[in-house]
Computed example of a mutant assay.
Amino acid sequence: MRNRLFASTISMLALCGATAATSQTYGPFNVVAPAGGDSVRTVIGGERAAAINAQNWTMSSWIEPKAIPNGSALVAGFGDAATGPRRYLALDQGRPSLVTEAGVLAASARITAGTWHHVAATFDGTQARLFVDGRQVAQRRLTVAPVAPVATIAPRGAGPVFAGRVAEFALQVGALDAAAVRTQAGTTPDPALTLYQNGSPDWPVQVRQSLGQTVQQDAWTRPVSKAPSPRRSPSRYRPAPRSSRSVRANGP
């Protein structure tokens, strides 16, 4: 798994060319976003925060939707998902798209649920280009604003919520050309070699949790059965008889 993550990072750096450096790439990020789960949000600091707002950039990800959302569902990106400025890969009625505060760049064809698709958006400072499975499908002029250095997968509060898997989501400095994007889209993620972060933590005792909960529920807040524990004698749960001394002490 570590080899998979390391190899993904190295391949993206190589595609950027000689000017790319580790501090100029954020990712890869692998997440399982279950229906009814929570989003995965990360604040980016240091040199990488500046790289998020580079003049030229490429944002890419493998996407496997569990179902096609009804409406425009943000999948993964940067900035304030609800109010902007923002920069997100999204699915609009199943059509891959780039969503920004300056406008939307969308493909004309829909993708299918349960299948991996590679989606990439590049920006050269003037033109934004959208690629699906290694092929350019849309292009338009955009003027994008700087975004907050916050990355979110399957954000909530911004419309329909994406459910499915996201693999190798990353943003890197430099607008890749079509050949480089085709290279990125050439190998579908191998589930046996990819470690996914779960958007809804799984705990052995508590199998359901509230939206937004990030730690296991306190034991004292869980429902308690009145039945005795099968591992202990029921006699331990019977109240002890009160002594005559205690009765006289507490009497009139």
Rank of each mutant, 00 (worst) to 15 (best):
V205R: 10
Q136S: 11
F169W: 09
N198G: 00
G174S: 07
S233P: 04
P234Q: 05
V147P: 01
T183Y: 15
V166R: 00
R242V: 12
T221M: 06
T126P: 02
S244Q: 14
P223D: 05
W220Y: 14
V224G: 05
A148D: 15
S210W: 07
A170T: 08
V166G: 01
T143E: 15
Q184I: 03
G157N: 00
R141V: 15
S244F: 09
V132C: 06
H117D: 10
G114D: 02
T152C: 07
L130H: 06
P204W: 07
A240V: 15
Y196Q: 06
P146H: 09
P189W: 05
V205N: 03
G174A: 09
F131P: 01
R238I: 14
F131A: 10
P146Y: 08
P234F: 14
R236M: 13
Y196E: 10
V173C: 08
F162M: 02
N198I: 04
V147W: 05
S200W: 07
A178N: 11
V137T: 06
R222D: 03
W116D: 10
L211E: 07
P191I: 14
Q213A: 11
V207P: 00
L171E: 02
T214Y: 02
F162V: 02
Q197M: 15
F131H: 14
V137G: 01
D218E: 11
A240D: 09
V166E: 00
R242M: 09
A219I: 14
D190V: 04
V181L: 06
T122N: 04
G199P: 12
Q213T: 12
P201L: 02
S243W: 01
Q139C: 09
S243E: 04
G164H: 02
V166F: 03
G164D: 01
A158K: 01
P204C: 07
R236P: 01
G186F: 05
R140P: 01
S229E: 12
I153K: 02
H117T: 15
T187P: 05
P149K: 02
V147T: 11
P241R: 12
